[in-house]
Design a protein around this nucleic acid. Structure first.
Length: 666
DNA sequence: TTTTCTATCAGCAAC
DNA sequence: TGATAGAAAA
């Protein structure tokens, strides 16, 4: 694309951002200001200015963003992008580790542990070290370890007691040839520090670096970027949309960036192309209550549009019905497709009632986020098989599958194996094979046979899965070999539907493997490559094709970077948003919760609905709810309030009547 | 010793 | 509602 063409398609600031290729660049991009557009045009412009693909590195947070970016650059330039690196931070870390992790004492076929695996390992280690059950809150400890690793927290006297556990956990990881998510950034940094030649290799290669969603980088990620970056580094972010502080996001990195790169050029994108003026004004009204922010004035030239509607349904079922009816009505009257709708919730648990309503009225939908596909037990089981097959020493995954489906290897046996493993300092797998080949073994004949069968199973599957093409077929054969279907049926005797559903999930897993290995852009369709990819995949992906024509139900966090013509924010109640637990931890978190609400509002293009239930089921009992205080921060003239029609208490009815009277007598 | 049954507990966001 | 830990049954 020629320069004057760029000039035509972009506004002044965007043009500036796209054409400034040399030197450090900080782009503050307000919500809906065409950020993705700027990044993709910038890459395209680089390529046309003769910068080789191999010198460009673009880092994002989600696979979805990476994929979208790559596709848009492809569409813009019409070029094949074999050497362009567009990747998530974590995936890029994996890439580095696969090359050189042996210098740190791991083998290249290392496993990547997700949170569930991590917590499992903490639990095992803690038990061995003699922690009592109530001192072993693995959720909290896992969080602690993560925060230590990413440099958000230091060891303090309050949690010093977990230090030995931390050491044990780290030893465990290394013994099992595994790394956790935080290591995917932390170990490359270590590698760079201890082996400057490795760092040099990457610094020589990547001359142009770009970081998307910069406000969500952690200290650790910042250090990683800083090590890699020479001078041509462009970061794009919006402090108002920083919503990942609990994962270590530190928007003060923006200030740090200005310090570390004093000759930085700063560009602000303040024109919003996404939303109506009403929606934008509501968002601005809310976010202006935050004290700790870079002041900016977003404006929109899209016309005022329709008012924001706030509903107060009786309970979560009524809320779900309201959403369903509104969607059906609008879809019909305005000829909207279902994928024009986004339904946003604060927490995954809130999805249930809405999903039920969608199912009942046959509205197609996708729920992304939360207990993602890959966290489901049945999927984890199958993946665990693959992981153990790829890496025998992966104890955590071995433990998951050694008796799933049941094959007579129970707690006692595992304890015995574990004892040997501990005394020898080896993995469970090594311990098992040692026990099997030992002349004298403490195991009974039957257990011995059961273990031998298991070892044989893994060995034959390994030979099959690691050789040649056709991964999907082989995985399918494996699932049949281990009789997983029978297992599901016996486990869920009372609930055949659940069993079927789980089996369908496995089938779609196999299908997704198949599409993956048949993808022509995929150079390596082996087992290792597949496992590498899959651990980093969380909510998005599977297939985009089946997102078409479906309502998008998701958490607000998951909606970052997306937009929908019509948006519903459900459960806008005190305690949900702002979330009670967040405020408990630290009252200052209110600002982050407000940003979250801001992100939710700014997803909407044309029309925004907000609902706040009067009552809601929480655990076993129904509790009264109060509307979110953030609702009052939306300027009143932008809002249309709708009171519920049914089942109003007497007092309430009088109150409402009064209000109506007042309205008409003004 | 392993499996099945029952009671109890806890539930925020994600790479 | 689901997952998990401990008790009873096979």
């Amino acid at each position: 694309m020629q320069i004057d063409e760029l000039k035509k398609e972009l506004n002044k600031e965007q043009f500036e951002a796209v054409t400034t290729l040399e030197g450090p660049l900080l782009i503050i991009a307000g919500a809906g200001s065409g950020k993705t557009r700027v990044i993709t045009y910038r890459i395209a412009h680089m390529l046309e200015s003769g910068i080789p693909q191999s010198q460009i590195l673009a880092l994002t947070f989600t696979n979805k963003a990476a994929k979208e970016m790559e596709e848009r650059v492809k569409a813009l330039t019409g070029k094949k992008l074999q050497n362009l690196t567009v990747s998530t931070f974590h995936a890029f870390g994996v890439k580095i580790l696969r090359q050189d992790i042996n210098r740190l004492g791991w083998r290249e076929n290392f496993s990547i542990y997700d949170d569930v695996d991590r917590n499992q390992l903490i639990k095992e280690t803690g038990k061995e070290l003699g922690f009592t059950a109530d001192a072993l809150d693995v959720f909290k400890i896992g969080n602690l370890f993560s925060n230590i690793k990413i440099g958000r927290w230091d060891w303090q006297s309050a949690n010093d007691m977990y230090k030995p556990l931390y050491e044990g956990y780290q030893e465990g990881l290394k013994l099992f040839n595994a790394v956790d998510f935080d290591d995917l950034i932390g170990l490359p940094i270590k590698l760079f520090h201890e082996h400057p030649d490795v760092l040099e290799k990457y610094r020589n290669r990547y001359k142009y670096i770009m970081v998307d969603e910069f406000q969500d980088t952690s200290l650790q990620q910042y250090e990683f970027m800083h090590l890699l970056a020479d001078k041509n580094v462009a970061v794009v972010g919006d402090d108002d949309q920083s919503i990942y502080s609990w994962r270590g996001a530190n928007y003060e990195n923006i200030l740090q960036f200005e310090k570390d790169f004093p000759d930085v050029k700063e560009i602000r994108l303040e024109q919003n192309y996404r939303s109506t003026e009403t929606i934008l004004a509501a968002a601005n009204g809310v976010i202006s209550h935050n004290t700790n922010r870079k002041d900016k004035s977003l404006w929109s030239g899209n016309g005022s549009g329709k008012p924001i509607e706030i509903y107060m349904p009786e309970n979560e079922a009524a809320e779900a019905d309201f959403i369903v009816e509104s969607i059906q009505g609008i879809a019909m009257n305005e000829k909207r497709k279902y994928d024009d709708f986004g339904v946003l919730i604060r927490a995954n648990t809130l999805s249930r009632a809405i999903e039920e309503a969608f199912l009942q009225s046959n509205i197609p939908y996708t729920m992304s986020g939360g207990t993602s596909f890959f966290q489901r037990k049945e999927i984890k089981d199958i993946i665990s098989y693959l992981r153990v097959i790829a890496n025998h020493d992966d104890d955590i995954n071995l433990l998951r599958i050694i008796n799933t489906p049941r094959r007579g290897i129970g707690r006692k046996t595992i304890e015995q194996i574990n004892e040997i493993a501990n005394s020898q300092g080896c993995s469970l797998w090594t311990s098992i094979t040692a026990l099997l080949s030992a002349q004298e073994s403490p195991l009974g004949e039957k257990t011995k046979q059961d273990l031998q069968d298991f070892v044989n199973l893994i060995t034959t599957q390994r030979a099959s899965l690691l050789g040649g093409k056709g991964l999907a077929k082989k995985v399918k054969a494996m699932v049949e070999e281990i009789n997983y279907w029978d297992y599901l049926i016996t486990e869920y005797q009372k609930n055949e539907k659940a069993a079927r559903f789980k089996f369908l999930n496995i089938e779609s897993l196999i299908n997704s493997i198949e599409t993956w290995e048949n993808n022509p852009d995929n150079f390596d369709s082996g087992l290792y490559a597949y496992l590498n990819r899959i651990t980093l995949l969380s909510r998005d992906d599977m297939e985009d094709a089946n997102l078409k024509g479906k309502v998008n139900l998701m958490t607000i966090h998951a909606s970052k970077g997306l937009e929908f013509p019509i948006v519903f924010i459900a459960g806008a109640e005190e305690g949900i948003i702002p979330h009670a637990r967040c405020l408990e931890e630290d009252p200052n978190n209110i600002e982050e919760e407000r940003r979250l609400f801001y992100v939710a509002i700014t997803r909407a293009q044309d029309k925004l609905f907000i609902s706040s239930c009067q009552k809601r089921r929480k655990m076993q009992n129904v509790v009264e709810c109060v509307p979110s205080p953030f609702l009052d921060e939306i300027p009143a003239n932008l809002v249309e309030y709708h009171q519920p029609e049914t089942e109003v208490s007497c007092d309430r009815a009088i109150e409402i009547l009064e209000m109506m009277k007042n309205k008409f007598t003004i």
